[in-house]
Each structure stands twice: as C-alpha cells, then as structure tokens.
Design a protein around this nucleic acid. Structure first.
Lengths: 148, 148
DNA sequence: CGGTATCCCATTTGATACTG
DNA sequence: CAGTATCAAATGGGATACCG
C-alpha cells in the first residue's frame, strides 16, 4: 500500500491520517490553534522550511481544514484560519498534548497551559460518554472492526 | 530542524509526535487497540512492509508503549501488548477515528464501531472538563504558550 | 510579507528473498 | 511464525536564492 492510496482505505483512522498524519502538518495545526495566522509566523514557530510549509498550508486549504483569506487593506496579505472542520480537530491536538505532558514531560513544565474558560481551572480535558456522561478510558469501550 | 531532533523540542505535542507521529506507527497502534498482538497479524492488517513493521514495533517497545513477550510453549513466538503508557494513547486514536467518521466518511459506514460497555450505547467519546464536568470544545479553552 | 524555484542529499519505501 | 538481508527507486528534507 502506498501512502498516496491510503485515502481510499476503509478505516477512518487511516483516512484521517492521509490528511493530517504528517508531522509538519500537525505542527501547523498546533500553531493554528494557538491563533497563528500568517505565513511567516507559521514558519518561525514551526521551524518548517518555507517550501514545505507552503505545501502543507496548500493541502490543508484544499482539504477544507484551513481557509486562506486576504486581510487588511493590502491585497498581498493573507491569513489562514481554521474552518469548522479544522476546529473539530481539537480533540486530536489536545490528546497529543495531554499524553506528552504526562509521559514525556520537559524539564521546565508544560509550555502550553490549558485553562477552561467556564470554570477557570487549569486542566487537561478527558473523554466521557455523550450518552451517559461517564468518564471513559480504553478499557470501558468495546471496539468492533466490521472486517474481521 | 531535523526530525531526529524533534524529541528535544519544548512542546509536548512535538515530543509526542517524535514517538508516534508516523503513519505506520499510528496504524500499528490502531491494531493494538483492536487486540492484534502478533507480528504477522499486524503485517496483514496494516499492510506495512515487513522491515518497516519490524522497525516500528521495535521503536514502540523501546519507548515503553508496547511490551514484547513470549507466549505459548514455544520460545520463538512473541506477542506485543500495550503497556499502561500505550493504553493511555487511547484518546489520540479515538479522536482520529471520531474525526474521520464525521468528516471523511466511507461509503459503507464506519468500519469500527465503538460501544460503551457501561451503558451499552454506540457513541464517540467527547471531551469534558475533569474539574467541573462540562463538555468542552476548542472555543471553551484558553491555550497559553509560555514562549510568546 | 508571502511565497517560488532550484538543487542535492539523506532517508524511507517497497519488493523480494531468505533464515531459524 | 517472526523476523533479516538486500537493494533500487521514490520521496522528502534542508539550504539557499529569488521575486512581486
């Protein structure tokens, strides 16, 4: 299986990875959630080579995850903003962050702090069941693959 | 920045990606959560070339995400099982799945079904605040990067 | 500021075969 | 079953320069 073909896979995980399963892409998304919007800011903060960044931004726009829009009065300035589809990737990003904070902590504490606006506490969101409201972990779930 | 150096980054997301931010690795983890344990089963179900699979399994074991253990009576049979550190990646995997089911649905419905053992319903877990219990999305959170 | 254009090199990949 | 060995080909990465 080639990676160009993976978008055709049955599995939603594989299809999702075909779109965002690239390390530079993930870092771009991290920045987008931190409200980075302009090319040069993405470049500086991700450290990606400019041609690579250009490519990844283009793909994300093509996939409808980012929107490219002119801003200000000049016609040669653009900003990239998350679409609804892009914002919906939040659980993926925050899960990566949470796991890293827990299992691969840096020396000086986590560089990104998460605060819940509503209650004001610092925390990492966790998974719960939208039907019954209980917290869920891997052991609480039954996963069934239809192809086996 | 080279990818070999990314493990040194400040950001937990980047450090996490340095360990699991590879597409084959992610598919291996998907299988692990679907209770795949043996080399050839991983190979068949992920479609990864054997040398690549061997490499990814080795790395995951080195990182403490999988454990390699002999099983049965023969000494040349091994199985790979998620450690606690590995099980804790569940939110990452399930978030990828959830997003894919929502935004990149296949023709014949999702091939992996999730059921909450406790309440019996089919659902996708969602994020909530462990402090106050409310559901949270990207807009409900304040993310602050300490380096800017 | 927001990109492209080049170019070269290192790495990864994919296929295939082989071994204990 | 559980890998290694080999190897050609493709890909991606990084540096640098350039343009409107």
């Amino acid at each position: 299986m080639r990676w160009t073909d993976i978008g055709d896979e049955q599995c939603s995980i594989a299809r999702t990875l075909s779109v965002i399963g690239d390390r530079w892409t993930m870092l771009v998304l991290r920045e987008a959630f931190l409200r980075t919007r302009r090319f040069d800011d993405f470049q500086r903060r991700t450290g990606a080579p400019r041609p690579l960044l250009a490519d990844r931004l283009k793909r994300l726009v093509a996939e409808g995850i980012l929107e490219r829009q002119p801003y200000g009065s000049r016609s040669d300035r653009f900003e990239y903003r998350l679409t609804e589809k892009g914002v919906d990737l939040y659980p993926v990003i925050v899960s990566l962050l949470t796991w890293g904070d827990r299992w691969m902590p840096g020396e000086s504490g986590p560089p990104i702090e998460l605060q819940h606006k509503a209650c004001g506490r610092s925390m990492h969101p966790e998974l719960a069941c939208p039907e019954c409201g209980e917290w869920v972990g891997a052991r609480d779930m039954l996963a069934t693959a239809s192809d086996r």
